[in-house]
Design a binder for these strands. Structure first.
Length: 372
RNA sequence: GGAUGGGUUCCCGAGCGGCCAAAGGGAGCAGACUGUAAAUCUGCCGUCAGUGACUUCGGUGGUUCGAAUCCACCCCCAUCCA
């Protein structure tokens, strides 16, 4: 095990399987459970690193596929690595491009060796193999790097899901064997679609490879939520307790609770910043489409219970005006808010775990949020 | 006073005998968004209402089986000439 990384389990909630932890990385310590804002193209859309600091971001996510294509991982390396390049000196996690294999659809062809794909930017041909991805992630220099996997769509039949899963396992092994830097924590990724037996097999296989942390991928791709929660239970019963568990791409408020209650430690999600750009705010009273006409003359804060810059200084009516006028500040203010809302929610979740009352807190939150 | 070009559904604007409740924009309204090909995408957008019915294309009258589209007169607007 790499000494640069340390995951300490500080407390387990007496009411659930929720865990309070502390993950040490070269660029800082992360309290878990945590939410990681997503900065795909070496920027969390609409946010400066200073603002990310102010809302108490602990760690950011970025993306191998996107940075490889533009501006190119060699350029990022020349710039001194991703931290220096984007002006963020806190921890960073890079996703491997496995999700793009999924989302780019017919632009790619999957083989045992890797994925041949065409750039969504200029159509040029490229090949990602586990070894190549490790090379790129090493050049980018994130603190945590993800193994290259195939994210299987939903629905997918058992046979396809199983074959894909085994390939993901072989790729995980190849990633581990070709990892280039000791100062990066490599996480494996559990797949297995929506099949409990496959999820169990995958969790076992990935756990046996002894990664520093374990990702749970291929969820929240269209399957019903109860199905996702069931998969989490299967997987987390098998994944080692002394290593961080990262539920990839999931991050609505209810998913935070349901995931943490089932032993998840890390989340990332683009929802916060995406819906912000589309005029919607997450609030303690549930999501609000600030763009809607109801808020035209609503001079209250976006979320009266929030402590962020946007909520403390502006009104819903003003933000709605900015949205209608297509002013860039609308996206900025709502991004600041939605991210702060999610980070603060996670802070509250950690506090509730510490006090052995996560189920109680969930009930309180859901009541106000409108989920009960 | 004369000449020419125009007046189309909230706005701009296409249509120039039937396939027109009327293209296309814009505005407006609503919905979606979960390891970001997303400051994107989708739907609605005359009225009432189940396929349907009804009232619309400056006004009035006419031609025609049928008119936003053709004719006459009138009213406005723009530009040019006196």
């Amino acid at each position: 095990m790499n000494p640069t990384f340390k995951f300490e389990l500080i407390h387990e909630c007496a009411q659930s399987k929720a865990r309070l932890g502390r993950l040490t990385t070269p660029h800082g310590v992360i309290e878990t459970p945590c939410y990681m804002p997503v900065g795909t193209q070496a920027t969390v859309k609409a946010m400066t690193p200073l603002e990310l600091r102010e809302i108490k971001t602990q760690i950011l996510l970025s993306n191998t596929y996107h940075l490889y294509l533009r501006p190119g991982h060699e350029l990022v390396k020349q710039a001194g690595g991703l931290h220096a390049f984007m002006g963020w000196n806190g921890p960073i996690l890079t996703d491997s491009g496995g999700f793009q294999v999924f989302s780019l659809g017919d632009l790619r062809k999957i083989t045992e060796n890797g994925v041949e794909f065409r750039s969504h930017i200029d159509g040029s041909r490229h090949l990602f193999t586990p070894e190549r991805v490790m090379e790129i992630e090493a050049a980018l220099g994130a603190d945590i790097i993800m193994a290259f996997d195939e994210c299987v769509p939903y629905p997918a039949d058992h046979d396809y899901t199983e074959k894909s899963m085994h390939m993901t396992h072989r790729w995980a092994k190849r990633c581990k064997e070709s990892q280039l830097r000791a100062d990066q924590a490599l996480f494996g990724i559990v797949q297995g679609g929506t099949y409990a037996d496959l999820r169990a097999d995958s969790a076992k296989a990935i756990a046996d490879m002894d990664f520093i942390g374990n990702g749970i991928g291929g969820l929240s791709v269209g399957e019903p939520k109860p199905m996702m929660y069931e998969m989490l239970e299967v997987v987390n019963a098998i994944l080692p307790k002394n290593k961080p568990r990262y539920l990839m791409g999931v991050g609505s408020p209810d998913c935070f609770f349901e995931g943490v209650l089932r032993g998840v430690d890390m989340f990332d999600c683009v929802l916060q910043t995406r819906i912000a750009r589309n005029g919607q705010a997450l609030t303690s009273r549930g999501p609000l489409t600030i763009r809607n006409a109801t808020f035209e003359r609503d001079f209250s804060a976006i979320d009266p219970d929030c402590d962020c810059y946007a909520c403390k200084n502006f009104t819903r009516a003003y933000v709605r005006h900015l949205i209608k006028a297509e002013e860039i500040l609308a996206a900025r203010l709502l991004s600041i808010h939605n991210l702060r809302f999610s980070l603060a929610l996670m802070e509250n979740i950690r506090e509730a775990i510490r006090n052995d009352r996560l189920l109680d807190y969930k009930k309180e939150f859901y009541e106000t949020y409108g989920l009960l």
